[in-house]
Amino acid sequence: MDINAISTQIDLDIQGVHSSEGLEEFRLKYLGRKGVIAELTSTIPSLSKDERAAFGQQVNSLKNRLLALVEDKQKTLSVQSENTTYTSFDIGMPGIAQGLGHLHPVTQITDEICSIFSRLGFSIVDGPEIETEYNNFTGLNIPLEHPSREAFDTFYLKDYAKLLLRSHTSPVQVRAMQERKPPLAIVVPGRVYRPDAVDASHSFMFHQIEGFMVDAGIKFSDLKGVLEKFAKAIFGNTINMRFRPHFFPFTEPSAEVDISCIICKGKGCSVCGRKGWLEILGSGMIHPHVFKHVGIDAKKYTGFAFGLGVERIAMLKYGINDIRLFFENDLRFLKQF
């Protein structure tokens, strides 16, 4: 066989290869067990001694050329095949991933608020939902027979005297101050219960966050400073705030805190009742009677306390208009948060 003729045929054949199948055919034709190279090699022993070496070299170089050709062709073919897959791929199909669940909006707001106070150095503490009448009222300077108690209407337990479902998270103040010594900086999230008829803005169960700080030298101006940091962290730096005198039995002086309406920016709209302000929490300096009840020396220590409704904050922040949605647990609602 004429090596040169074969070499020319190889050049022709390789140009005709356009697929991996074609390449395999090509490889088998030349490099396979019964291929051209094998055939050429098998003739070597029949040659004369002088011819053998030269012919062997020629076959060898031909074989190397073939191997290189196959390798090159393989590369070009695989690039081409990548290109063809690419064009037929639809990125418009939905991405493949395990869908995440959603945390309840009350959890999200609670976590956000607790995290703000955590960063300010407050500890997060829990308290029981079943409370004593003492911790819920008397220890907090709320007289049992006075109109000031009306804001704290309460569910009582049937077979357990003087036990009730806490109507606010403030009883944890009493517990924490009995158990620990100042300095104290604590926030308490949790469920509270009031026998209110249910409507768009009332629920017999909701969530509150109580916070308080007790140390020597805590002042009303500190209350303002801390709550300002909090309100701006949660509602943004552009809001205005005001502290309005109010009454709570467990604080004196007491203040309600308003922020400029986040819907109308203070101009007056239906959300803020045309007032331009939204009440977000109640606060004040801890009443000396509360300190007396828990055995903290009011001459040595002062403190502030505040409480807020989690659903209210969530409703304002997310624009939710009905408190019942939080407990209906419609997945179409929950999945928005």
Partner: peptide
């Protein structure tokens, strides 16, 4: 009344 920051001992 001004706003101030209390020293917290976390």
């Amino acid at each position: 009344i001004p706003a101030s920051q209390p020293a917290v001992k976390p």
